[in-house]
Design a protein around this nucleic acid. Sequence first.
DNA 1: TTTCATGCAACATATGAAGTTACATGAAAC
DNA 2: GTTTCATGTAACTTCATATGTTGCATGAAA
Lengths: 152, 152
Amino acid sequence: MKRDSKLSGVLHVLLHMLGMKGPATSEQLAAIMSTNPVVVRRIMAGLREQGFVASAKGHGGGWTIACDPSAVTLADIYMAVGEPSLVAMGHRTEMPGCLVEQSVNSALDGAFREVQAVFQSHLERIALAALSDEFNRRLAERGQTLEDQQHA
Amino acid sequence: MKRDSKLSGVLHVLLHMLGMKGPATSEQLAAIMSTNPVVVRRIMAGLREQGFVASAKGHGGGWTIACDPSAVTLADIYMAVGEPSLVAMGHRTEMPGCLVEQSVNSALDGAFREVQAVFQSHLERIALAALSDEFNRRLAERGQTLEDQQHA
DNA sequence: TTTCATGCAACATATGAAGTTACATGAAAC
DNA sequence: GTTTCATGTAACTTCATATGTTGCATGAAA
C-alpha cells in the first residue's frame, strides 16, 4: 500500500514555521518538503479551517502559525489533515452475506478499532511545542543553528 | 491506499475449511472468497510453510488443516501471511538529513511501533478455534446449517 | 495596473495489492 | 503409460489511490 505521509509532511512544515519570523510562502515550504506548492496548500487547508494557521494573499503574504504550540497536540493536527486511516488492512467485502466473513470481520474490526484509539491517544499526549523542544535538543547536540536547518 | 486483505481473506478460508470434511481445492476456496485460485495458492503458501495447512497435488488433492485450531492464534496466521504492515502512514523521506524531520519521524515512529505491538498482542489473544466458535454461535442464532454457509 | 500570493478544479503519474494467464510439476485414476 | 486433476510459480495486467502538476481565478500590496 502506498503510505499516507500528510501528517509527517505537515508536522515537518509546522516545525520549520515555528523557527521562522515572518510568513512563509507555499513555495518556501514546498522547497523544505521537496514537493509542490500546491501540495502544501492542499495539506494546509485543513489546518487553516481549524484555525491552527492563517494564510494571506498578495505581497508579503503566506502562511503563519495562528495557535499556541503548547496547546495543540499531534492528535489535533492529525484530525485537521482529515484523519487519514491509520490502518492499512481491510476486508475483502464490506457487505458480507456470509456468516463466516462476518465473524472474521468483527474480530479484526475489534483489533482495528483498538489500534486506532491507541494511536490517537498517543498523539494526544504530544504537543507541537514538545516536538519543537525535541528538535532544539537535537540541534544543540549537533552544535548547529536554526539557519542551518532551514536549508537542509 | 489500497488496503491489504490477505489476513481477512485467509481467515475466511480457514474457517470454511474447519467446517469441511475432505481436502478443499484452490478453486473451491477461490469461489468462497470470490477470487482467483492463484490468489488462494499465493496466500496459502505462507501457511503451508509454517505447517498450519498441507497441500496435495493430483486427484483428491487440495488443502487441509494441519494444526490444532485451539493452539493457533490470529497472530500466528498474521505472521504466516507475511506480516503485512498494519500502518498506512509513513514518512516523506526515510533518510532525512533534516533534524526537523528526524524529530517528527521519531515521534511518529514511536506511535507506529506502539500501535503495531498492540495489534499483534490483540491477535495473540484470539485462537482460530475461538473464531470458529463465534461463527457457530452466529449460525445457531440464525437457525441455519453449515451447508447453507458453504455456498453463501 | 502590475506583481505576488493563495484557492481550487482537473488532469497526470506512480506505487503496490490483487487479479490473470501460461506453463511446469507431480499424483491418482483409468 | 497416458490422461486427468491439482498444486507451484513466474510474469504480466488491472485497479485504487496518494501524490504531483497544470491552469486559471481571486485578491492584496507595491
